[in-house]
């Protein structure tokens, strides 16, 4: 399937960038004219992944978060969110709803939200090397895309 647009973004793991990341992705995919609900789903999933990198991967430090995204001809969007932080010891366990190492005020729902709000999610992580989350969602274009 042909890629009709793509982008890359690198920013430091500061919490004020959570909103920057999700609004940038929202703006990038706006050419597909998504519904309010589709847009909210994607913004929420991006916010969860970026928050994980900030809260867990770069817990005691500030590092770079890398986002790349592609839009395909059929309306498929892929979003890759990568960090070079601490990595996740047990990805399967981390993806269980309510599991958290983030303390009292963290709900432990980040991956559950990403799984539920996106069509596909893949997590690759290595201790000491970092984590890459790749997500996919297809939105049926309501406008003819200008390639």
């Amino acid at each position: 399937m042909k890629i009709i647009n793509e982008m890359r973004l690198v920013f430091p793991s500061k919490s004020l960038n959570e909103s920057f990341a999700r609004t940038t992705i929202a703006s990038f995919i706006s050419c597909l004219d998504p519904t309010i609900s589709e847009l909210a789903d994607i913004k929420t999933a991006v916010s969860e992944a970026v928050t994980n990198s900030i809260v867990h991967a770069y817990k005691e430090t500030v590092g770079s978060i890398y986002i790349s995204s592609q839009i395909y001809e059929n309306g498929k969007i892929t979003i890759k969110i990568k960090d070079k932080g601490s990595g996740i010891e047990d990805v399967k366990k981390a993806m269980e709803p309510l599991f958290t190492t983030g303390g009292e005020e963290r709900a432990g729902l980040g991956f559950a939200v990403m799984q539920s709000f996106m069509d596909k999610i893949k997590v690759i992580s290595k201790i000491g090397k970092g984590t890459t989350v790749t997500m996919e969602k297809t939105i049926i274009p309501r406008v003819k895309l200008n390639k």
Binding site: R22, K43, T44, S47, E48, E104, E105, A107, L109, V113
Partner: peptide, 13 residues
């Protein structure tokens, strides 16, 4: 306008 799972943590707390 927007809420992610941090809002759920906030409500639970």
């Amino acid at each position: 306008n927007f809420m992610d799972s941090s809002g759920i943590g906030l409500i639970m707390g």
